[in-house]
Write a protein that binds this DNA or RNA. Structure first.
Lengths: 219, 219
DNA sequence: TGGCTGAGTTCTGTATACATAAGCCTTGTA
DNA sequence: TACAAGGCTTATGTATACAGAACTCAGCCA
């Protein structure tokens, strides 16, 4: 693995997991020493992070970790609804029904996983990830997939702020199952509607658990 | 201006204007000497180009200019319709009617510009750009704007392949005027429909003028 | 006492030298 | 003559040294 890849992965993880808080200045010498590499590969890593929007160049004085405000979350979900709604519709038109029918069945059994310990929870998140991957594969549109992929980076960051309790995860699994069912049925409008519903509930949950007061705790 | 910015702008322009054809290998020493800079800023420029999708790393053997196939054009316009349709709808909800009413009036007079020489044509393209900018400003969603911005890079590249004759430009101006009118009227569904119509006609025009045979002429 | 100016420091931006790995060509052998 | 193995060439990946710019802080002047 290249040193720049390692630095990129490490910094990306630190930002997403909120170990590097918004506003933190990523000085090149400091970070390169911390990661045990030279400045050259670190700069490439910072370039990639900036291209993704996780950092911004602060007017010639280093790069800083970007903030995510409540307004940003609204904007993120507005774009997410646009992209994933269309993606679900396209998947319903082009996807293989059997694939999504299988995912639907697994998602209906997901509540058994949610109550369990970490390994089971990990299985649940993997299942949701497989649904996303199946949709990506079904729509066969590299540009749309890329747009969603770049969006998911920020969404993971937001998700880390919201406490995903068992109740919300159980409800989310049902919503995901509804999306899979609509896609398996080949019904684009239903798939889009199910996605819209799911995203609105997700957003409500995030905004409910992530109050401005709790937000201050982080920054 | 930084050397890496200069290299990025130069390479980006060369790719968009098809002076660097798809499949061209951008060797670091070769390009750095051509642009009169060192390898370090050139590598940063290549990183940015790769992040944008204009180039790809060819499995450890340099970066090559990405190709745009007919399938890619379909995918590009599918994403474009998704994003710009939603953007037009949001602009209709949130934009200032007077701004778009003014743009509509100017667009209706655009045919006078299209018949003229280069400076007038430049004015026309500037006018269309102002409509895009007005929509971007009206929706007030940085993530959606960013997604459209990254998409436009590829669209400019495609546009260079299509011969924009006066007839198509005149029709396009009318379509743009219809979009501006719908936004000014504050009608989201109409704005989205007008955008969908415009993009479908644009795509038809591109695919009609840009046959696979002509495509071969480039590659 | 407040603001401005200057040197000092520390950062980023760039160039270059070195390390390493991946092709490719050559050569030898079957 | 075809295939494989090895060295050679050339590319990228990395480190480091140097240059330039910007921020800071102290000292001076109004």
């Amino acid at each position: 693995m290249r040193a720049s890849d390692k630095a990129y992965a490490a910094l990306r993880d630190d930002i997403i997991e909120w170990r590097l808080l918004p506003g933190t200045v990523l000085a090149e010498v400091e970070q390169s020493e911390r990661l045990g590499i030279s400045r050259t590969p670190l700069r490439e890593a910072l370039s990639r992070l900036t291209a993704e929007g996780l950092t911004t160049t602060a007017g010639g004085r280093g790069v800083v970790v970007t903030d995510i405000s409540l307004d940003d979350i609204d904007e993120l979900f507005e774009l997410r609804e646009t992209l994933e709604g269309r993606a679900a519709a396209l998947a319903a038109e082009r996807g293989d029904p059997a694939t999504f029918e299988q995912l639907r069945r697994e998602l209906l059994q997901a509540p058994e996983l949610i109550g369990g310990q970490d390994p089971a929870l990990h299985d649940y998140y993997g299942l949701v990830g497989r649904l996303d991957a199946a949709i990506d594969a079904a729509i066969s549109n590299a540009y749309l997939v890329q747009a969603m992929r770049s969006l998911r980076v920020h969404l993971v960051r937001v998700r880390r702020l919201a406490a995903d309790d068992a109740a919300r995860l159980t409800a989310a699994a049902a919503e995901h199952a509804a999306i899979a069912e609509a896609i398996a049925a080949g019904n684009p409008r239903l798939a889009e509607a199910a996605t819209t519903l799911h995203l609105h509930r997700s957003l409500s949950h995030v905004k409910a658990t992530h109050t401005p007061q709790q937000r201050e705790h982080h920054g």
